[in-house]
């Protein structure tokens, strides 16, 4: 688990950096760990950095969408950040627009918006 992604708490935001070529099980475990930590830490924001991901297929795309929905139920706003251009184009082609998640260019952009909205 620890190798699949690193999770840090900064202010009241959980920062998650996903490693490349994560397996299905690892990302499912991450989803579970995150929901636990949102509650345990009282986090109001989650920032998922996918800059390391060379590929996002429909499975990972779906998990990211589910993560956002789940976090919202637990009163935390999720930002997906750092998506590569080729990944964005491919996801759109696959018909996955992650419409349930917010997006930002980078970690710092997401943090700025979370602060602006009083969540960090």
């Amino acid at each position: 688990m620890a190798e699949a992604a690193s999770v840090y708490l900064v202010e009241r935001v959980l920062l998650v950096a996903i490693r490349d070529n994560i397996t299905d099980t690892e990302i499912m475990n991450l989803q579970e760990e995150l929901s636990d930590r949102i509650v345990a830490e009282g986090a109001r924001g989650v920032v998922i950095d996918i800059a390391a991901l060379e590929i996002v297929d429909t499975f990972v795309g779906r998990v990211l969408a589910q993560l956002s929905s789940m976090a919202r139920l637990l009163a935390a706003e999720t930002y997906v950040v750092g998506m590569r251009p080729a990944v964005a184009m491919t996801l759109v082609e696959l018909g996955m627009d992650l419409s349930g998640s917010k997006t930002a260019l980078s970690l710092s952009h997401a943090l700025r918006r979370l602060r602006r909205d009083g969540l960090a």
Binding site: Y79, M83, A88, V92, T103, A104, L105, S106, H109
Partner: peptide
């Protein structure tokens, strides 16, 4: 619309 969707995925 796809272009707009991809732009949004990038965070813009």
């Amino acid at each position: 619309l796809r272009t707009a969707a991809a732009v949004r995925l990038m965070g813009a």
